[in-house]
């Protein structure tokens, strides 16, 4: 049974349409949800959780339909959207105390452990926290009720590199204890460290749903001098990016082999940048 099953999710806005988006999450895996700003990551997550009213599609968590089991499902998941930006003048111990009351399985020990680990002062208010500390407090709340699935919308944005690395360590610890994590990001190096799979969304459509290795293995990166690629090579380009000395091109692996190009496997970031640039042009 998949932890999360999304089928044919569609949300239409006047200037943007999401979907149809379909994917599944397997238990105990970390899945990175990537795409550039405005690609539809947050809309997908909000539609899954009913914050945004989708025009079509079905969402099941733990085999339960979201519409009929909203409260039960929410008690088994943790959702973080950026840092804590609510009740800016209330002490965070008050916010935590109120939040804890909603969860039968709130783990006070885990909460204080995370507060210590993130060096958070419960006497402070969100207004007194830096953006990074707000994200950390938000994570403390999400991680303290033994959530089976964590849905995190850009949890690492706003964090310094050391804090980001600490957070990714937390993700790996949680994964080891069987927690499933879906987190959106546009920082691809986060995924290199901890993600098992990626969902890559571009302009409202899922472009990839696979392991990082599997996704990257479909492409090859080749470099051209100032004269650029030959016309037959240009036809096969999946993405083109200008560089200081000329250009770099992303090709389907089969095309690169057929053309006999000298190339290498791309990094996730370079694959994403090339694909996005091609799409724009």
């Amino acid at each position: 049974m998949s932890i999360l099953s999304v089928r044919g999710l569609v949300k239409k806005y006047p200037a943007f349409t999401l979907g149809p988006v379909s994917f599944d999450l397997e238990p105990g895996r970390i899945t990175g949800f990537i795409g550039r700003n405005g690609a539809g990551k947050t809309t997908t997550l909000k539609s899954m959780l009913g914050f945004v009213h989708p025009d079509a599609g079905d969402v099941e968590f733990f085999g339960l339909g979201f519409k009929d089991h909203e409260a039960a499902i929410k008690s088994r998941i943790g959702f973080v959207s950026g840092g804590v930006d609510y009740y800016s003048q209330k002490k965070i111990k008050t916010i935590a105390s109120v939040t804890a009351g909603f969860y039968a399985n709130w783990d006070a020990g885990a909460y204080s452990g995370l507060m210590d680990r993130f060096r958070l002062d419960p006497e402070k208010t969100p207004a007194q926290l830096s953006e990074g500390m707000k994200v950390k407090f938000s994570l403390c709340l999400a991680l303290s009720h033994k959530a089976e699935l964590l849905v995190l919308d850009e949890p690492t944005s706003g964090l310094d590199p050391v804090s980001r690395d600490e957070l990714l360590d937390v993700f790996l610890d949680l994964k080891a204890s069987g927690v499933t994590i879906l987190f959106s990001t546009h920082i691809t190096s986060d995924l290199d460290k901890c993600a098992d799979r990626i969902l890559y969304i571009r302009s409202g459509r899922l472009l990839a749903d696979s392991t990082i290795e599997g996704f990257l293995d479909e492409y090859r990166l080749a470099v051209a001098g100032p004269q650029g690629f030959a016309p037959e090579q240009e036809k096969a380009l999946a993405g083109l990016r200008r560089t200081r000395d000329g250009a770099s091109g992303l090709f389907r692996k089969s095309d690169a082999e057929a053309l006999g190009l000298a190339c290498e496997k791309p990094s996730l970031e370079s694959a994403m940048v090339h694909l996005e640039k091609e799409f724009q042009s």
Binding site: E70, A71, A72, K74, F79, S81, Y87, S88, F102, Y103
Partner: peptide, 15 residues
């Protein structure tokens, strides 16, 4: 101003 709705709907309750 304090994003009360965003906080509330994320809690384990129905909208």
């Amino acid at each position: 101003e304090n994003h009360d709705i965003a906080y509330s709907v994320a809690l384990p309750v129905r909208k």
